[in-house]
Amino acid sequence: MVLSSAIVNCMHYEDTEEYMYSIYAKRINGKFQPDSEALVLKLTVEEMEMKSIEVVEEKCPGFDYFLEIFVLKDFYEDLLKLEEFKSDTKKVERIIYYAEFDA
């Protein structure tokens, strides 16, 4: 999966009391890109309490933490209300910027 697909399809994932979803992605030239390889990991509560580097070493070597799905969904829903972010491309670019610089 590529990062843009993981972002656009974020509403398909539902956290429960037993597990939560997080996105991990590979950087291209040091940055997350829409076409970065990405994984949506279903993590137990115990795994969510681990440091992200430990999750990476155990479950997805070569990837970096991107965002938890619940954070992404909140941000995504806010973008849906704004005229300037009607296209998926604009939403993806803004969410990547958020993950890199504001999260």
Rank of each mutant, 00 (worst) to 15 (best):
I28W: 03
T89Y: 11
I69T: 07
F85C: 01
E47Y: 02
Y21K: 02
L43A: 05
H12K: 12
S87R: 03
D35V: 09
E37R: 06
M11N: 12
T44V: 08
P61I: 03
A99G: 08
A99C: 03
A38L: 01
A25H: 02
K51G: 12
K73F: 07
F66R: 02
R94E: 15
D74Q: 11
D102H: 10
Y13G: 07
M50H: 04
M20G: 07
D35H: 10
Y76I: 08
L80I: 10
F66Q: 02
P34M: 05
F63A: 04
V40F: 05
E83V: 09
Y98F: 15
F32S: 00
L82Y: 06
S36H: 04
E77R: 13
L41M: 05
F32P: 01
D35C: 08
Y97R: 05
Y65T: 06
I95G: 00
Y13H: 08
K26D: 05
M11G: 14
K26I: 00
Q33E: 14
E100W: 04
A38V: 00
Y98R: 03
V71F: 07
D88W: 04
M1P: 02
E84D: 13
T44D: 07
L72M: 07
S52D: 14
V40N: 06
V56Q: 01
L79H: 03
K31V: 13
E83R: 07
E83Q: 11
D74T: 13
S52E: 12
Q33A: 12
E14P: 03
E17D: 15
D88F: 09
E17V: 15
M1I: 12
P34T: 05
S4K: 13
E37Y: 08
M11D: 13
F85G: 00
E57N: 15
Y98E: 05
K26V: 02
M11S: 13
S87F: 02
D88E: 14
E14R: 10
T16K: 02
D74K: 09
L39T: 01
P34A: 03
V55T: 07
I95Y: 00
K90V: 12
Y97T: 08
I95S: 00
F85T: 01
Y24P: 01
K59A: 04
D15T: 12
K90C: 08
E49R: 13
D35F: 14
S22M: 10
K91Y: 03
K73Q: 15
A103M: 08
